[in-house]
Amino acid sequence: MTDSKELTPAQKMMGDIAPKLVQLNDDILFGDVWERKEISPRERSLITVSSLITGGNMEQLSFHLNKAKENGLSEEELVEVITHLAFYAGWPKAMSAIMVAKKLFLEEK
């Protein structure tokens, strides 16, 4: 796993049951793929949030909405992404995504 002494979020969530998946998540996905310089972290977040919504993967969406905000996307931009995707990914997926966003954004205020 990673060299850090503090547990990563993935280690806390599933390290006890899926240590290899955690290692791949921490070392490859977030340690390599997310750090590549060919596109910015902001662009990666925009792509990732869009992909999660399109795929209907709402369980991962809260984490990535937060990451998107850390990477420079505003709440208004994220709501606009969801609104735009309603016509490409489907209305039910957009409605589910906006409820995830609403809950997350209200918790932060």
Rank of each mutant, 00 (worst) to 15 (best):
Q60R: 14
W34Y: 03
N57R: 14
A94D: 01
F63C: 02
M95P: 01
Q23T: 08
A89K: 07
E35I: 11
S45T: 07
L21F: 09
V81F: 00
L104I: 07
H64D: 04
P19A: 02
W91Y: 03
S96R: 12
A101C: 09
K67L: 14
W91C: 00
P9S: 04
W34R: 05
S40F: 14
S45Q: 06
L24P: 00
A10F: 10
L65D: 01
E35K: 12
P92A: 04
H64T: 04
A101F: 10
E75N: 06
K93Q: 00
I53C: 02
Q11D: 03
S45W: 05
K109I: 15
Y88K: 05
P92M: 14
M99H: 03
N66Q: 15
E43H: 06
A101Q: 05
N25C: 10
N66D: 07
E59A: 10
F30D: 03
E59F: 07
Y88L: 08
P41K: 08
T2C: 04
E108I: 12
D3W: 07
E6T: 14
M95F: 13
R36H: 02
E76I: 14
K5M: 15
S62V: 10
I82Q: 02
R36Y: 15
H64N: 03
L61W: 08
L61N: 05
K69I: 13
T48L: 05
L46E: 02
L85H: 01
E108R: 14
F30A: 06
E108V: 05
V79E: 01
V100F: 08
A89Y: 14
P19T: 11
A94W: 11
E59W: 06
Q23L: 11
E77L: 07
I53F: 06
S45R: 13
F105W: 13
G72T: 04
L21H: 03
M99K: 15
K67F: 14
L61I: 12
A101G: 03
E70C: 13
H64L: 11
S96C: 09
V100W: 10
E80W: 06
N25D: 06
V22D: 04
P19V: 12
G15K: 07
I82T: 10
S74K: 15
N66W: 11
